[in-house]
Design a protein around this nucleic acid. Structure first.
Lengths: 213, 213
DNA sequence: AGCATAAATAATAA
DNA sequence: TTATTATTTATGCT
């Protein structure tokens, strides 16, 4: 199966570190063990700073030097890249991480400035679907688990409309804001609902199969 | 907004650590700063071992002593619990983590035994071709790098047939549907395989040209 | 005290 | 790279 033309990744070249040999794996003059160790530590350092792969990728794109996407960071951490690529990206990440850690010590604000992303990006409040909304969504899901963009918009509009016509309900401004946060079925919320629903279905099927082999 | 009947969480009681006061925040004789520091370190230690909250929760349920769910671990790390609860769970986590780290040092197998969860429960793998399938594909590629739609279908069918002729297998309606999905999907996979293969060939050629200018 | 599941993040396909 | 799936975390509920 090594008849592929694609060059092998670092992780493929480092198959079994179980062996306690004292020599290091080297390919094209590149020390793979060293890169592996750096990748592992990089992940821990990243998490210690509370950063996501996406944030690192965006920050790298913002600062001068090569830009890397979230996928690139992911691949580096998993060593799913060629030794040559790893060798190239490693110093960039090392330099960036050192600066980030330095700024972290001088206060979180200093770090977020460096990261560039909005500092206090709070998690979206968990949406509560009404039973009525769930019925509409489930009915749709039974017929079609992959709604198109237009269909999602349609569902979103329908649900928001259904909700708005409860007669006799009145809200203050603040209540309205909170309600809007909590109950507004915007497109993204609907899209995610279908994602999660598909996952749930998949899990159910898998479980059923295990129980009836 | 403090008119709530619910007791405040640790994170609520530790609002601003920005101040550099030397005194520690203490509630009911419980040192909140200490708990905060422990929670932070616990998360880092957990990640260093490559464990998820779910795994820790399951392991805690498996071993003797109090059981905690993933939610409980999450809430502890976020300090979204009362000081009293935090004080109670802290030693349990500390003891467990020490044991886990000890076993980690003695080999990963030792750790996975301790964790208890199936070590092989991996993320679904990207499509992988059997050596037989690769041979068929490579043979075709050598003769023709650009298969037509019909040829792709033919290849797909052939590969699926090779794989499926385990005699005596029968399918229910639902299974048939899923299989059908998979067959269609495989066709797309074949198409992409050729795309990637052509790309690899191109890269190889480019590299060869660079080496012999 | 913890389930169910919404939201966020990481990994993979395209 | 971008788009989407798979996995993990967080939270509303009771």
């Amino acid at each position: 199966s090594l008849s592929e033309g694609l060059p092998p990744s670092v992780s493929q070249l480092l198959p079994n570190t179980v062996g306690n040999s004292t020599e290091s794996t080297t390919v094209d003059g590149i020390n793979l063990d060293e890169i592996k160790e750096f990748a592992k530590q990089f992940k821990i350092r990243r998490l210690s700073l509370g950063l996501t792969q996406t944030q690192v990728g965006q920050a790298l794109s913002a600062t001068e030097g090569p830009a890397y996407s979230q996928s690139a960071i992911c691949r580096f951490e998993k060593l799913d890249i060629t030794p040559k690529s790893a060798q190239k990206i490693k110093p960039v990440l090392e330099r960036w991480m050192q600066e980030a850690e330095e700024r972290y010590k001088n206060g979180i604000q200093n770090l977020t400035d460096f990261i560039g992303s909005e500092p206090s990006k709070k998690r979206k409040r968990r949406t509560s679907f009404t039973p009525q909304a769930l019925e509409v969504l489930n009915n749709f899901f039974e017929r079609n688990t992959h709604p198109s963009g237009a269909e999602i918009t349609e569902l979103s509009d329908k649900l928001n409309y259904d909700r708005s016509i409860k007669p006799g309900t009145h809200f203050s401004g603040a209540e309205m804001t909170e309600l809007s946060d909590k109950l507004n079925y915007d497109r993204e919320v609907i899209r995610v609902w279908f994602c999660n629903k598909r996952q749930a279905l998949k899990n159910t099927i898998k479980k059923l199969k295990q129980e009836t082999p």
